[in-house]
Amino acid sequence: MIDNMRYLCFDLGNREFAIPLLSAKEVIGIPEVTAVPQSPSHFLGIMNLRGNVISVLDLRLKLSIKPVTSEENTIIILDLGDYNLGVVVDRVNSVQTVEKDKISEPPVVESTSKSDYITGVFRKDEKLILMLDISRALSVEDRSVMKQKNVKAA
């Protein structure tokens, strides 16, 4: 049983999120992205990462968070097993080691159905950091979105 886990903390809008460090492969600046027609608005397109073509999604648009700044952007390249994706975030802050007992259940709010990708919260310097289940956050519709769209188009 691992009691401590390392998390990558980043900003989306003025909120801070964390994902397990191991699910992030690297952090890069935004390269040129080729748009994919008829994709959802948070799907920015595809990029060339050293010879590999990777889809880029805007996590802020995906989670309906208003970006603070559109100038300084960063892409986190995720390794989610079958999926290699890049997600755009506002800023990458730090890597935190969090003890397991410091993580608490997310506070129950009224509209739980939309925030089931928050798996827990922890405090850092009096600030609350939300722990994100990134594949759940993305898979809500992304994985099948192209198919659904095509059915409609046909």
Partner: peptide, 12 residues
């Protein structure tokens, strides 16, 4: 040729 990522695999 590079394969489409799974997230785009359904694209016709």
């Amino acid at each position: 040729i590079k394969r489409l990522g799974k997230e785009l695999a359904g694209m016709k």
